[in-house]
Design a binder for these strands. Structure first.
Length: 442
RNA sequence: GGCCCUAUCGUCUAUCGGUUAGGACACAUCCUUCUCAAGGAUGGAAGCGCGGUUCGAUUCCGCGUAGGGUCACCA
């Protein structure tokens, strides 16, 4: 059997990670066995559905690299829905019912399904057999009018028409399944396999929802998360490959994915873990790719290239990386302002002027450095001077390295001076050191 | 409240009756070190409770408890 799965979002807002997670699972399951992955936009709610949300869904799915084999809009199927609705009413398995409107927008006439009662059960691929007593559902509404089918009806018809073999969706649909099966039977349609995914909780331990502050996936993209990280993290919420691997690419996920390893219990969305997954994937990037993701045109390109290792080691998102470029790492691109007292922080009281002497010999050593010297080379030249100071037994290496690093960075916390010099180049480094000496001599 | 689902470290999870209950993230300590970051090492940290079944239960069953989902003319 050729597998067909679908992702059926409703475009009534920007989708969050929980929504896209069902897309990820449906996609992985289909692609694992070379099946089809369908996207069906459930836009039957004409009032709340917005085209901008539809655009966003396709945009984000493309961003995640989840490509659909077919795409549909539920609203395109109106004629088909109408046809089957009429059939049901003609069969007397559904009927037009006079109503007293309870809320604004309510119709005076709706179509209700004649509930046969009894119990309905199905075998969920993740949870096993689930049985529901369908009697207490009553004669539920399946359409507001012949041209306005309600979700349960449209889903059943569309899944069948689109030849969906596996309906993979969130666990919050479990209780909808029984009534959908009832409609299926009345229509004589085949029942797909069902797989209800464990829900994703937020920090309040409730189903992820925009109402309680779940971020839209677009926000993560804008914050500088990598799609491969989101994908990786989402796939691991409620599933695991069965071994100790933690970082899998889309290709590897497709190869490994198995519904049998999907968890039954809900999982809590953990931004801290997401961050670390994202950092992993950032570190996998080549320097060029990293820079293009950074998209930071306002700084010196050559220095930026050299700063990438620093960013990879410190930033967990590209947003953070950009912040660093204008914050703690800004000294790489602009001359720092120095505070005389900080410069002298490691100066020994009985050695007035020691810092000046140290900086002077440092600048002499650094000026002779070859162009493009690596931080290791710099270290080989600078460290002996610091060690010599330590050998004197007074200030230690810090007496040399602290003023050096501060002269270069203007910050009490920064990357080590060797790395700074290798990025700044010897000329600029010496100029900054001389600037520091001038401040001390003032 | 009715119905349904779920239950291993703080979090994501491994274990498909027999393990010193493993890994990852986070955390702590140490090492490295002028600072920060990274890195390395080490450590603390879990089977919800009670009954069964069994030679043996985290694992199977029942009950309890807890949490969640769902009860729309939204999807």
């Amino acid at each position: 059997m050729s597998i067909v799965t679908r992702f059926a979002p409703s475009p009534t807002g920007l989708l969050h990670a929980g929504n896209y997670r069902t897309a990820v699972f449906a996609y992985l399951f289909a692609k694992h066995s070379n099946g089809k992955f369908i996207i069906r936009i459930e836009d039957t709610d004409a009032i709340r559905s917005k085209s901008e949300y539809i655009a966003s869904i396709f945009e984000m799915l493309a961003w995640l690299d989840l490509t659909a084999d077919e795409t549909y809009r539920q609203s395109e199927h109106r004629p088909r829905h109408r046809e089957l609705l009429e059939k049901l009413v003609a069969d007397n398995t559904a009927y037009v019912s006079k109503e007293t409107p309870q809320a604004p927008g309510d119709r005076e006439e709706v179509i209700r399904f004649r509930n046969p009662g009894g119990t309905v059960s199905f075998t969920d691929m993740i949870r096993g057999e689930i049985t529901t007593d369908v009697t207490d559902l009553g004669d539920f509404i399946i359409a507001r009018s012949y041209d306005e089918p309600v979700f349960h009806f449209a889903v059943v018809v569309d899944d069948a028409d689109e030849k969906v073999t596996h309906t993979i969706r969130g666990g919050d649909h479990i209780s909808n399944t029984a009534r959908q099966i009832l409609i299926q039977r009345a229509l004589g349609l085949p029942m797909p396999f069902y797989a209800h995914l464990p829900l994703i909780f937020d920090h309040t331990h409730k189903k992820l929802s925009k109402r309680t502050g779940a971020k839209a996936l677009t926000e993560y993209r804008d914050l500088g998360y990598l799609p491969e990280a989101i994908l990786n993290y989402l796939a691991f919420l409620g599933w695991n490959p069965g071994d100790d691997r933690e970082y899998l690419s889309l290709e590897e996920l497709v190869a490994t994915f198995d519904l049998a390893r999907v968890q039954k219990g809900s999982a809590t969305f953990d931004e801290v873990k997401l961050l670390s997954v994202n950092q992993h994937w950032m570190r996998e990037l080549t320097i060029d790719d990293f820079i293009s993701h950074l998209n930071e045109a306002s700084v010196d390109a050559e220095k930026l290239r050299k700063a990438v290792p620093l960013l990879k080691e410190r930033a967990q998102t590209f947003g953070q990386a950009r912040e660093m470029l204008s914050g703690e790492l800004s000294c790489l691109f602009a001359e720092p302002e120095l505070d005389r007292n900080v410069l002298l922080a490691k100066e020994l009281p009985d050695h007035p002027g020691m810092t000046i002497l140290a900086l002077k010999s440092l600048s002499e050593a650094i000026i002779s450095l070859p162009e493009g010297a690596s931080s290791e080379t710099v270290k080989e030249v600078v460290m002996p001077l610091a060690n010599a100071e330590e050998a004197k037994g007074k200030g230690g290496r810090g007496a040399v390295l602290w003023p050096l690093r501060y002269a270069l960075s203007g910050q009490e916390r920064s990357p080590d001076p060797f790395t700074l010099i290798s990025i700044l180049g010897s000329a600029e480094s010496v100029s900054r050191i001389r600037n520091a000496i001038a401040i001390l001599e003032r």
